[in-house]
Design a protein around this nucleic acid. Structure first.
Length: 510
RNA sequence: GGCGCUAUCGUCUAGAGGCCCAGGACACAGCCCUCUCAAGGCUGGAACACGGGUUCGAAUCCCGUUAGCGCUACCA
């Protein structure tokens, strides 16, 4: 009936997945057995037209949390019906982002683009039942009408001029090759549903348009594809962003026309930038990959995102995965949009950092060092991480500090460092010289934090110096900055020879 | 323009008629600790958008106003 030229309807192979999850047992959801009918089935359905946005990640998280809480199934479906903008690379980024967040899906990924035949069949079923009709109006005429309506400051609704076309004329124009879409005949009734987060929401059918459900090339439009797929996948709860609220009445109408009960809808609030506008590129990092690169831990990201728009009630903030699952409920989801606060994310990341041992941080820090181009060689990074993690809020921050301790070439004096050198004047080099002399007298075997602080304190006392005036220059000489772990630990971690070398070099330069 | 959603400290939120002249967290300021910073402890400033109802009593219920946001495609 429709030509095979619908480019978006061909089967498409899943891109090679580097995700740690097992491949789906069944290549197509049509073959799934009805064995868990009573348990919830939820899905995350991103379109691979960009990176995994934090808003999308949070939607995925809520779906995942809900599935884990209820013993239900979390399904991943890639909505790639917009073939112009969808790419396999984007799909892979989404898969990787989900895997990084630790959100394992139970089924999928399924590809919407592979289901074109069913979408078309559903559209034609509606057509046959008189619940949809063919429309020959061209995009150009429609555009003109829309613009006219806009200019007249009135609402545009398709005027249904093709609805009354005689069957014969439709056949004739189709046979002549005239392009036609299929439009859904929107009923006039009230359309309402009990939203799990907002309560009852209702629309009047008369305010809704006769939406196109099948393009002239035979490919489905979003609202049809979603409903068709959600029915086929037996989705019980649709948890998605608030921006879909106005799509929901259209979809509910489609469910009714298709003879299926709609699922439970739960519309979660948007995530905004600091200026109260929808989070977007100009707010800086919006992709989960950006946060991965910034050295945010997956667990912290998960915890932070969970608390954006959801609250377990009471004062709970830091929650282990199991607690979060146990506490999760749709009722706890907020109605109003939430502003993404990077400062709080970093604070939370710091909390997670402090809960992890140096050993557990080894792999991510090494990865970050590689990224920074630091050759950590065979050095035992444990003590270095231990020394720096208390003051760091991100993995990246730890790696930078480890790098400074590892490689004298990474030492650059920051503003505060410069200020200290200026303030001390000649005393800077003099005090460094004193420290270097005293420290040089400590044999390698005694180069321990305890011994070092003893020596330094004695030296300061003997010279009549405030301890800080002796130690701060050492700190600046070793790290370039005025902030670090206690100086004796810093000396220990940098090592005797390297420390002495840095001290001498700094004293000469000053 | 139409339709819809939303409204508690700067931010994330607790609060489901009296427990609230509103609690916690981030951020901010001060103090303690201290060689610096972080952490930790203590302290402080900081909010129920506005106007009407309902009620003995409202942040909580109802109505209106205002503001913000979303949708209004042969995008998803």
């Amino acid at each position: 009936m429709f030509g095979e030229r619908g480019a978006g309807t061909g089967e498409r192979a899943a891109p090679p997945s580097r995700s740690p999850f097992p491949a789906p047992r069944s290549p197509c959801w049509r073959h799934l057995r009805v064995t868990t009918a009573a348990l919830p089935r939820v899905r995350f359905a991103p379109s691979p037209t960009g990176y995994l946005h934090v808003g999308g990640a949070r939607t995925a998280l809520f779906n995942w949390l809900f599935a884990r809480k209820t013993g239900g199934t979390f399904i991943l479906r890639i909505e790639d019906t917009d073939k112009d903008r969808s790419t396999d690379a984007h799909t892979q980024v989404i898969l990787d982002g989900l895997a990084w967040m630790g959100l394992a899906w139970d089924e999928g990924p399924y590809f919407q683009g592979a289901e074109g035949a069913r979408h078309r069949a559903d559209a034609e079923r509606l057509l046959a039942a008189g619940k949809a009709y063919r429309c020959f109006c061209t995009p150009d005429t429609l555009d003109a009408q829309r613009r006219a309506a806009e200019a007249a400051k009135s609402a545009f609704r398709y005027d249904r001029r093709c609805r009354g076309l005689a069957a014969g004329e439709v056949e004739r124009r189709l046979a002549a090759g005239e392009p036609a879409v299929i439009r859904f005949l929107m009923p006039d009734d009230e359309i309402a549903w009990e939203d799990a987060v907002h309560g009852r929401i209702s629309f009047r059918g008369t305010d809704l348009d006769d939406l196109v459900i099948l393009r002239s090339d035979g490919s489905p439009i979003y609202n049809l594809a979603v409903v068709s797929d959600d029915i086929a996948m037996r989705i019980t709860h649709v948890i998605r962003g608030d921006d879909h609220i106005s799509n929901t009445p259209k979809q509910v109408a489609l469910y009714r026309a298709l003879g299926h009960a709609p699922p439970v809808f739960a519309h979660v609030p948007m995530i905004l930038g600091a200026d109260g506008k929808k989070l977007s590129k100009r707010h800086g990092a919006t992709a989960v990959g950006d946060y991965q690169d910034r050295g945010i831990l997956p667990a912290a990201m998960r915890n932070f995102l969970a608390l954006l728009g959801w609250s377990p009630g009471g004062d709970r903030e830091i929650m282990a995965e199991a607690e979060m699952i146990g506490l999760f409920s749709l009722e706890g989801i907020q109605k109003k949009p939430a502003v993404f606060d990077t400062a709080k994310l970093e604070w939370m990341n710091g909390q997670y950092l402090s809960m992890l041992s140096a050993g557990e941080l080894l792999a991510p820090v090494r990865r970050e060092l590689d990224r920074l181009g630091v050759d950590s060689g065979s050095r035992d990074l444990g003590p270095l991480i231990e020394a720096t993690k208390a003051r760091a809020r991100t993995i990246t921050h730890i790696a930078e500090q480890v790098a400074v301790r590892l490689d004298a070439g990474r030492v650059t004096r920051d503003e505060k460092g410069e200020a200290l050198v200026r303030k001390l004047g000649e005393a800077y080099a003099a005090n460094l010289g004193l420290a270097a002399r005293e420290l040089a007298g400590v044999p390698p075997a005694e180069w321990t934090p305890d011994r070092l602080i003893e020596v330094l304190k004695a030296a300061a006392e003997q010279a009549g110096l405030k301890l800080g005036d002796l130690l701060q220059p050492v700190r600046v000489a070793l790290t370039g900055g005025t902030v670090s772990e206690p100086v004796n630990e810093l000396l220990h971690v940098v090592g005797r020879d390297a420390s002495l070398a840095r001290l001498h070099a700094a004293a000469r330069l000053a």
